[in-house]
Design a protein around this nucleic acid. Structure first.
Lengths: 158, 158
DNA sequence: ACCACAGGGTCTCTTAAAGGAACTCCAGAG
DNA sequence: CTCTGGAGTTCCTTTAAGAGACCCTGTGGT
């Protein structure tokens, strides 16, 4: 719903939410990722209302996360991930890992991932891109960066 | 808003969205993570409506992501991350990395992270927890897992 | 003992977004 | 020349977010 626009906050989390924070958006992205990339396929797969699906697709295309590719002389499109969108899938992979661990219950994870490099069923882990050691919530200190608090007159964020 | 409950879908992404998919929830989590953990502090920091903040905090506590710690004889609470919540911060770190790369613009990232292990300003990278090689969207194949499609009578998901 | 204060909510009202379903548009098949 | 099937679009109803006033309860000052 999001009446408040998060994009103006000096916070990359808030800005990212402006792109995929709306309800259904991550699931639309997931569908495109796994190859469900036409309107009616997605609609059927997700059970989302057609109106909302239209809005989400338009928004994701505007944001440069998806691209429309015509596949017919009529205005018929397939949606595909851009580079920006492909990198956003990292987020889905981490959501999957967390959901698998904390929410899957006795049935176990609904989907497994096989890693091409090693051929194993595995999941994703977060590492420091400098030293390669694990990097999680308690392993870091936040410091103000160059883009901090850009609008002095603004009300609040962090 | 989310009239549709995602939690019933056989998809860890959808289930995770049920926990933190509502508007503001990730930002509430971020605040608690960085030490803004009382009601009025969060309200002031985010500019969220008090009603919605109450709902989000209640929900996150119910889901076991946050814990209430009294700090007064009156019913006054600090909110803290549980283990489940701390691991969910991984998601925020990945959102931050993506937002820093694609949305920060010329000003640069609003916040930097210093990694304790190496002392460097760095960001997070996704690795296979088996072989340690990079693991991104195009490096994996999804396969059906043990918890796939639990309700044969159900309508749709993936 | 009394009053003002502040943290942490609750209530109410308005506005906008999600759900659902019917309707439109158009190219190609028969 | 009508039928069908993707891809939207329109309309209506329901519900959640935004905004801001109001409430309740210890506490500290006088």
């Amino acid at each position: 719903m999001q009446r408040t626009q998060f994009g103006a906050m000096a916070c990359s989390i808030a800005r990212t939410l402006d792109v995929i924070g709306e309800p259904w958006s991550p699931l639309v992205l997931r569908d495109v990722w796994v190859g469900i990339n036409r309107f009616d396929q997605m609609q059927a797969d997700l059970g989302i209302s057609r109106k909302v699906l239209t809005e989400r697709l338009d928004h994701l295309v505007e944001e440069g996360v998806l691209e429309r590719h015509p596949y017919d002389r009529r205005p018929r499109f397939e949606y595909r991930l851009t580079q920006k969108g492909t990198e956003l899938v990292d987020l889905l992979m981490v959501m999957t890992a967390w959901g698998d661990k904390w929410l899957a219950g006795e049935a176990g994870p609904p989907v497994l991932y096989r890693h091409h490099a090693c051929g194993e069923i595995s999941s994703v882990d977060l590492r420091c891109d400098h030293c390669g050691e694990p990097m999680h919530a308690t392993d870091i200190d936040p410091l103000p960066g160059p883009g901090a608090a850009p609008v002095p007159a603004a009300v609040s964020e962090a």
